[in-house]
Design a protein around this nucleic acid. Structure first.
Lengths: 225, 225
DNA sequence: TTGAGATAATAGTAATACTATCATAAAAAA
DNA sequence: TTTTTTATGATAGTATTACTATTATCTCAA
């Protein structure tokens, strides 16, 4: 038996559902590779079209512009991560252990443990690290938010915030701490690889050190250290 | 007596020093206003030239491209902030008090307490919140780092890291905690204003709440709570 | 067999991100 | 005072990006 998961995406994210067609799936697959390789700024629909063997117009039928495509990809990642969090914390009833599992999922490179057809999750994780805040750090963030484009991120933060509260119901900043640990995990990873002097992990370049830092931070903050 | 501070900028940041000429100062002044208003993505040299009443070519004489201009502005901010940190912690010998002062400088809107001619520091702070990570989140981060473009940010982190160590010489992650608190301060501020459901400060929209969160986080982490 | 849905091919536009050239005005050096 | 440097303005031009529009073709399902 081969299991496939399918993530239902917000319809505002696309013009035509890329999951429904071969070209659509190719757009997702190749855009992930290309954004990873070139960085989001240098990534263009023209280059993507050339790579896939289609035309710019073809891609514009699926996505309004490259920013929407980025938001789509990132939203997919957050949904997928929330799903992973659910699976990995299933049947675990100790709140601290659950939180530890979440931190590990956030801070370490994904192993392809869930089958998804057309997405390379490990490369996607690298995109998230470098590009994910660009999804909302725009001057149209309010409109995008009204279209619910950031719901997967919010849902994940909500879930993590609830885990934090389960550890310590009196902790005053569960939501803020939730998104903080996500963003810290990414920025530490980015700095470790690109501006290592800014971190305490320069020598080892080891993700498990980031995880230790995060655990230290979180459990000290919620008073369970 | 009127005191003016002058920040010496890395020469790689510009083609022609904007501090030396009227046009140069105008470029800085107007670009800050315009990036604040339009967001960095919608900001162009054409619009800036029109606003100043010069030509695109004129601006290209000062800055290679709009990204370099952003990095210049941000680098200026970090240098200025490090200077502020120095002044405000001068003659304060209690390490925890010093750290508290730094957190306040990081988390709250600047009052124009130091005279600088052509920079609106309070608008600049808003730019930093929304755009500062875009300075290094690029695929040319390594080259830019070799050119020392991020030195002011690194210097500030170093200073904060030293304050952290002064509070607790055994704390294992002073550098990582230093940049983490900077980035958390910004992201909480951004979320509070733009995606308030993600924070615990939604109702009040009050920077002092962010400061409380940061203090809680930092002093818990270094074990002085 | 018809027709809906998807794609390819082509064309075209406005804006962006630059580079180059030349004339001129102002400031500094001779 | 004259010369030279420096900064700016005016103008022009190119490649690329970010789109939109049109038409022809292909495929699959009713």
């Amino acid at each position: 038996m081969e299991l496939q998961i399918q993530i239902k995406m917000n319809e505002k994210l696309y013009l035509r559902d890329p999951e429904h067609t071969e070209l659509g799936k190719n757009i997702i697959l190749h855009s992930i590779k290309m954004i990873y390789k070139l960085g989001f700024e240098s990534f263009t629909f023209r280059k993507l079209a050339l790579d896939i063997g289609t035309t710019e117009a073809g891609i514009y039928r699926y996505f309004e512009n490259k920013h929407r495509l980025l938001v789509y990809i990132i939203a997919w990642y957050w949904s997928w991560l929330e799903y992973r969090v659910k699976i990995h914390t299933y049947n675990i009833y100790n709140p601290e252990e659950r939180l530890r599992i979440v931190l590990k999922l956030l801070a370490t490179t994904v192993e392809d443990d869930i089958q998804t057809s057309h997405v390379n999750e490990s490369i996607l994780h690298q995109i998230i690290i470098a590009e994910s805040t660009k999804a909302f750090m725009t001057n149209h963030v309010t409109d995008d938010n009204k279209d619910q484009l950031f719901k997967p991120y919010k849902d994940l933060c909500k879930a993590i915030g609830d885990f934090i509260l389960a550890c310590n119901p009196n902790y005053k900043y569960p939501k803020s701490l939730a998104n903080s640990i996500i963003e810290i995990a990414h920025i530490q990873n980015f700095f470790m690889h690109n501006l290592p002097a800014l971190t305490d992990f320069a020598d080892e370049k080891d993700e498990s050190k980031i995880l230790e830092f995060l655990e230290d931070l979180v459990f000290a903050s919620i008073g369970k250290y």
